[in-house]
Amino acid sequence: MKRYVLLIIGLAMTAIYLFPLYWMYLTALKSSTEIFQYPPTFWPSDTQWNFLEVWKSRDMGRYIWNSLLIATGVTILATTLGTGCAYVLSRVRNVWIEIALFAILMMQVLPSSLMVTPIFVMFNQIGLLASPRIAVILAQTAKVLPLYIVLCRATFVQVPRELEEAALVDGSSRIGAFFHIMLPLARNGILVTSVLIFLQSFGEYVYARSLIAKNELQTATVGLQTFMGPNANDWNGIMTYAAIYVTPILIVFMLLQRRIVSGLTAGALK
């Protein structure tokens, strides 16, 4: 009996917490007159499906494409650079490795909004701002790479040393052992961490806003921000935009939820 009372309280708390999400979907489905009704309605009386119109009129395809491009670039760059580094940090132990790990942990905490000033000036001077999406990829990779290394290292730590040593005894080279033994065994952790940094970069805002000047190269976050403007009242459209943007993120997250949670907690506390 007590268990069911707890379940009901738990459901109620989850519902209260997720109310903003419900409100987003609800507003997206309401008609543009219904959203300004007071008192507000909690179920759409006249459901509107204007997803396609918002997608077209706000040119969302282009924004989402830019976001995807940047997130993909960041993920590829960070996994390429980070996986090997995470592996070495999990295997070798000496003072230098400790210092390197400490430095990486420190770089993980630098806020983008503070780093963007020197990065902007530096990129401007070396002419990188001429290809602004690449500039955002480079800056965002520097932001997520430390997190990727820390989480991936936690995965490599769990792979038994003996498996790699056995391969080396059998005459495999270090490179061979890394690619044929270590990578396949750490595959799940690498995959989940990559998804995590992909999702983070897909929602990146500061660098895109500050380094990209041309509207047609902007990302979905900046597109949403322009849509919101100073005197926005098309909340119907704004929430439709938001719903289109976050639904794929939420779906991916729900599918991988358990793994993301365990990877994340392992990394944050070790």
Binding site: L21, M24, T27, I238, Y245, L250, F253, I260, V261
Partner: peptide, 18 residues
């Protein structure tokens, strides 16, 4: 609950603004 954490903060801001 983690749905709130994975969403882009800008989108969360838009929802709260409304």
């Amino acid at each position: 609950f983690l749905a709130g954490w994975i969403m882009p903060a800008l989108v969360v801001g838009a929802i709260w603004k409304w």
